[in-house]
Every structure is written in structure tokens, then in C-alpha cells.
Simulated assay, not measured.
Amino acid sequence: MDLAFVWFILLAVLWTGYFVLEGFDFGVGVLLKPLAKNEKERRVMINTIGPVWDGNEVWLLTAGGATFAAFPEWYATMFSGFYLPLLVILLALILRGVAFEYRHKRSDGNWQRNWERCIIIGSFVPALLWGVAFANLVQGVPIGADRNFTGSVLDLLSPYTLLGGLLTLGVFVTHGAVFLSLKTLGDLRHRARTFAVRTGLVTAVIAVAFIVWTAVAYSSTVWTWIVGGIVAVAFLAGLAAVARGREGWAFLFDSVAIAAFVAMLFVTLFPNVMVSSLNPEWNLTIANASATPYTLQIMSIAALVMTPVVIAYQAWTYWVFRRRLGTQHMPATDH
């Protein structure tokens, strides 16, 4: 039980890393059309995440692999019940990755615009559906006594889960706009800052509604209120910082807000990992969904060895590509 609890926390950390890092490049992708005024600015936006977007997805692969190994019952029930939305997310991520690679292969304007649309779609869909998926974990889904999902995809759609989807979409778009204001120069930087404030205010209202709904309807602990309060305060602090031109602080506060949001979901779930809407006795818990103690021991040793290496490499990547970009850095063509 002790190691299972540790891995429950570690999964929260992995999802935090994924949402913080992949979150801003989802936001950048969604903003390609609304924010950029011309082709050169779209190239600047893509280049801000070009060196890091694929590395950010490592956090998702690790979170999925860790769930499979540490909580096989959770993995099996979740992936069977959420099969269609998770497949849609996977297809969107594939489309997005292909678009990044193929967009610059030809200088033809229509070719590039079509791949840019693929980047937008491939960023929008996961940003929305991840919120729907995690809201379903908190709300509960039809799980039978045999720990199998017994519902349909329509059972995953409700006002609460759709609100969760709008929240992650809004947070990621705001996070992406803050990242662009941190990484760009000139008019694009100022437009990104203004956009971050505007979308952030709307997202803050959605966040408060989601936090209150979660705490009132689905939580049995005061910690949901406490951690939810941290989400709201950190997010508003980020908006205040970006409005004053302190983009670095704004990005930090946004990251804290996202981390607190993930923590709120996991605190609300605890000690469950999936809630049965049919019978609380059929919930999947940390205890009954975890792997054997020996498996968790081996995983812990591997994590202690490899995690610092991965984090160090990714930190080095961000350091190397830390400078701001502007349209003046873009050559006449992509070739």
C-alpha cells in the first residue's frame, strides 16, 4: 500500500509535467490563426515550440506506461471505457506531429495553410478532451462489480465533464499565450500578452465554477477547497503578472495553477483511482487496482535512476532554446 500510494503521487507529478509543458504548446497550436497576422508570424509561433513539443509528449508516454505498470486494473478499466475519446486524442496527436514535420516541406502557401489547420485541430482536440477525461474520473463512470466499464461513450458526456473540457482548453490557450509573450518580440509579443489576459479572465470564471462544482458535488475532503483555492489564486496572479509585462512570473504562476489543478483532482479522487457511478463498493482504489509490491519496487528503482536523466536533458533543451524570436529572425522561405 505504501509504494502504491507513492506511485499515485508520482502519477500526479507526471500528469502535472505533461499539462504544464504540453499545455503551452497546445495553446500555441490553437492560437496559430487567432494571434498571427501573417505567414511569418505563424512561423515564429511554430518555431517557439519546434525544439520542445515532441520532448513534452514524453511525459504523456511515461504517465501512460506508469499507469499500466503500477495500476494495471486502473489502466484496463480506463482504456476500455475511454477507448473512443482516447483514440481521438491519439489520432489528433499523430495529425499534429505529422503537420509539424510536413508543413515546411514545400513553400506552397496552400500546402502550408492546410498543415497549419492540422496543427490547430491536433492541438484543440486533446486540449478539450483531456479535461473531459479527467472530469469523468472525478464524477464517476459506470463500473460493474467485475471492475469493467459497462456504459457507452455518451455516459462520458455531461455538463460537468464538458465544463472540465472547456477549463483545460481555456487554461492551455492562456498558458500558450503567456508562453508566446515570453518567447517572442515586437507586436506578436504584445498581442499575445493582451490575448492571455482576455482569455485568462474568461477561463478564471470557468475555473471557479468547476472548482466549486467539484468540491460540492464530488468531494468528501476539505482539501479540494484548499487546493482549488490555490488554483484560483495562482491563475489570477499569473494574469496580473502578464498584464504588467512580467511574462516569466506569469508563466511560473500558470504552472503552479496547473500543478494545483492536477493535485485537486487527485486529492478529490483519493483513495480511489476511478469512481463507480453504480455502486461505491465497486470503486477502483489505490489498494485494489495496484500491481504487486515487487513490481512497484522494480519500478521505483528504475524511476530513481532514469528520472533525473530525463529531467536534466529536457532542462538543457529549454536552456539552449531560451532566446526570444521575432519575424526578423525568419528567412524569406522555409528552405
Rank of each mutant, 00 (worst) to 15 (best):
R198I: 12
F124V: 13
K105A: 09
A217P: 00
L182D: 03
H190L: 15
N114D: 05
G164R: 10
L93W: 09
P85W: 04
K183Q: 06
T184N: 02
T203Q: 08
K183M: 12
D146F: 08
G122M: 09
R117K: 14
W130S: 02
F149K: 04
L169V: 05
A133G: 04
W111I: 09
L156E: 03
T184Q: 05
G109Q: 04
Y102V: 06
G122S: 07
G144K: 13
W130M: 09
S107V: 04
S107T: 04
V197K: 05
V197Y: 09
T214C: 11
D108Y: 00
W115I: 11
G164M: 13
I94S: 12
L137W: 03
G109N: 04
L167A: 13
L182N: 03
S123A: 14
S181D: 06
W115M: 11
I94A: 13
A204S: 14
A135F: 05
W111G: 03
S181P: 00
R117P: 00
S158V: 11
F134E: 01
A135Y: 02
R193Q: 10
S152M: 13
L90F: 13
G151L: 13
G131K: 05
V125L: 14
G109W: 01
G164W: 06
V98Q: 07
T199C: 13
Y102Q: 04
R147C: 08
A207Y: 00
V178K: 04
L163M: 15
V212K: 09
L188G: 03
V132I: 15
G186P: 00
I206M: 13
S123E: 04
L95R: 06
E101Y: 03
D155H: 15
A133I: 14
L188K: 07
E116Q: 10
V212Y: 09
G164T: 08
A215E: 11
L169S: 02
V202G: 14
F100C: 12
G151D: 04
L201W: 11
N136V: 06
F195A: 10
G144R: 13
A209E: 01
G131L: 10
R147H: 15
Q139L: 15
R96S: 02
G131Q: 05
D187L: 15
L185F: 08
T224N: 07
F149L: 14
A145P: 00
G151Y: 06
T184H: 04
F179N: 00
T150R: 15
A196C: 10
W223E: 05
A99T: 08
K183R: 15
F172I: 12
G151S: 12
A192I: 11
